[in-house]
Amino acid sequence: MTAVTDEDRAAYLTLLAEADTPAALGFAGGLLDRGVAPEGVLLDLVARSQARVGELWAANEWSVAQEHAATHVSEQVVAAVGARTAVGASRGLVVVACVDGEWHSMPARLLAEVLRLHGWNVRFLGASVPGPHLLSYLHHYGPDAVALSCSLPLRLTTARRVIEAAREAGVPVIAGGAGFGPQARWALRLGADLAAAGALEAVRALDGRPPGGRPLATVPAAVAADDEHVLIAKRGRELVDVALKKLEEHFPVVRDYTPAQREATEFDLTQIVEFLCAGLFVDDEHLFVSFVEWLAVVLGSRRVPLVTVDMTLQWYAGVLYDFPRALSHLAAGRRVLAAG
């Protein structure tokens, strides 16, 4: 079997940059003709190129519209590869869906195709499937498993409710995606029966399960020992207001922001609270720390002074003085910023 090379990926990335769907389809077809396995095209070409696209966006080299256009091209490539390598479904039914609020559907789409290649009968429900809708679907079709994808840890509280509900409905849950942390390590803590860091791990995990199986694991106790994440989430607005006011004090330019700039700033401030809550929810400082690292890249490449982030973390710590876990997460975030 031929492998996908770095040159292949570079060529494909150029096509994505041009949003040239016909050429991208032709290119992927060419790789299949050359003897690259369909799984290789999906994971080594498309998935890795999409990861690169995400990095390019974070580094402010690509616009969000470019990123989305590229993703659109890749989605069509995935569909075409799937159509060309149709495999008769010989195994059970797996429903693949993104957690409510999760719009990054590419990882789930790739998983769906890879599972199909391995003989599973797959229903792909797409991005941001509202929990109640997914539940209704599960009750209606009674699949052998539901694969939940989550790329941003912000959706983990939602993910947990869906996982619990799916298990109540008697459908085993396999959870994966970057949102569940390194090696999807938070997935089991949130009650999933199986965790998978990537598509191939998911295939292997499902291989080990008999069809029609019931959930195995017992639902774990609350993830976090206290309600800090709930209580802080409720005070999100207050925190953002405090930070906005202080930003205006320290940086008079903020007062002259356009409504759109102001909204963007509010979005960033809100996101910091949300990631903090997510980290508290899984009780793992790594979550908030890696968010701060990522935020430093995104804001740094957009010439936002990182001191504003550090100050914001400090202000939040001031408001949240009686939340011990939050304080330690915020402190860890500040240490990362200080380390540069």
Binding site: A19, A65, H72
Partner: peptide
């Protein structure tokens, strides 16, 4: 405005 020129499906989804 931000998505001017994007493919139709991308615009709709966005």
């Amino acid at each position: 405005d931000a998505y001017r020129g994007a493919p139709a499906q991308v615009m709709a989804e966005r």
